[in-house]
Amino acid sequence: MYQAVIFDLDGVICHTDSYHYKAWKFIADKIGATFNETINGKLRGVGRLDSLDIILKESGICHLSPNEKAFLAEAKNDYYLHLLDYMAPQDLDESVLRTLRDLKNIGIKIAIGSSSKNAKRILEKLEIINMFDAISDGTNISHAKPNPEVFTKAAEMLGVLPSCSLVVEDAISGVEAASRGGFDSAGLGDAKSHPNVTFQLSNFEDLIGIVR
Rank of each mutant, 00 (worst) to 15 (best):
residue 2 Y to S: 06
residue 6 I to D: 08
residue 6 I to M: 12
residue 7 F to C: 12
residue 10 D to C: 05
residue 10 D to L: 00
residue 12 V to D: 03
residue 18 S to I: 10
residue 20 H to Q: 05
residue 25 K to V: 08
residue 26 F to D: 11
residue 26 F to S: 12
residue 28 A to W: 00
residue 29 D to Q: 08
residue 29 D to P: 00
residue 30 K to A: 06
residue 31 I to K: 09
residue 31 I to W: 00
residue 32 G to S: 11
residue 33 A to G: 09
residue 37 E to F: 08
residue 38 T to W: 11
residue 40 N to L: 09
residue 41 G to D: 13
residue 42 K to L: 10
residue 43 L to A: 09
residue 44 R to N: 11
residue 47 G to D: 07
residue 47 G to Q: 06
residue 48 R to E: 03
residue 48 R to A: 06
residue 52 L to H: 02
residue 53 D to C: 09
residue 56 L to A: 10
residue 56 L to K: 09
residue 57 K to D: 09
residue 59 S to E: 05
residue 60 G to D: 12
residue 61 I to T: 14
residue 62 C to E: 15
residue 63 H to Q: 13
residue 63 H to L: 07
residue 65 S to P: 05
residue 67 N to G: 11
residue 68 E to P: 02
residue 69 K to H: 01
residue 71 F to T: 14
residue 72 L to W: 00
residue 73 A to V: 05
residue 74 E to P: 01
residue 75 A to R: 13
residue 76 K to L: 01
residue 79 Y to I: 06
residue 83 L to Y: 01
residue 84 L to Y: 00
residue 84 L to E: 03
residue 85 D to I: 10
residue 89 P to W: 06
residue 90 Q to W: 05
residue 91 D to M: 08
residue 96 V to E: 07
residue 98 R to S: 12
residue 98 R to Q: 13
residue 99 T to E: 07
residue 101 R to G: 12
residue 104 K to Y: 02
residue 104 K to W: 02
residue 105 N to W: 06
residue 107 G to A: 10
residue 111 A to K: 07
residue 111 A to C: 15
residue 116 S to K: 03
residue 119 A to T: 14
residue 127 E to K: 15
residue 128 I to V: 14
residue 130 N to Q: 15
residue 131 M to I: 15
residue 132 F to M: 11
residue 132 F to C: 12
residue 136 S to Y: 05
residue 136 S to P: 08
residue 137 D to F: 04
residue 138 G to V: 04
residue 138 G to Y: 02
residue 143 H to P: 03
residue 149 E to R: 09
residue 150 V to F: 00
residue 156 E to L: 13
residue 157 M to W: 02
residue 163 S to I: 10
residue 164 C to M: 15
residue 166 L to K: 01
residue 170 D to C: 05
residue 172 I to H: 07
residue 172 I to F: 03
residue 173 S to K: 12
residue 174 G to E: 01
residue 178 A to G: 14
residue 178 A to I: 06
residue 179 S to Q: 14
residue 183 F to H: 04
residue 184 D to R: 06
residue 185 S to P: 01
residue 187 G to M: 01
residue 189 G to P: 02
residue 190 D to T: 13
residue 192 K to M: 03
residue 193 S to G: 10
residue 195 P to D: 07
residue 195 P to N: 10
residue 196 N to P: 09
residue 197 V to F: 03
residue 197 V to C: 08
residue 202 S to M: 05
residue 203 N to K: 15
residue 205 E to S: 14
residue 206 D to C: 11
residue 207 L to V: 12
residue 208 I to T: 14
residue 209 G to S: 15
residue 209 G to A: 13
residue 210 I to T: 11
residue 212 R to P: 11
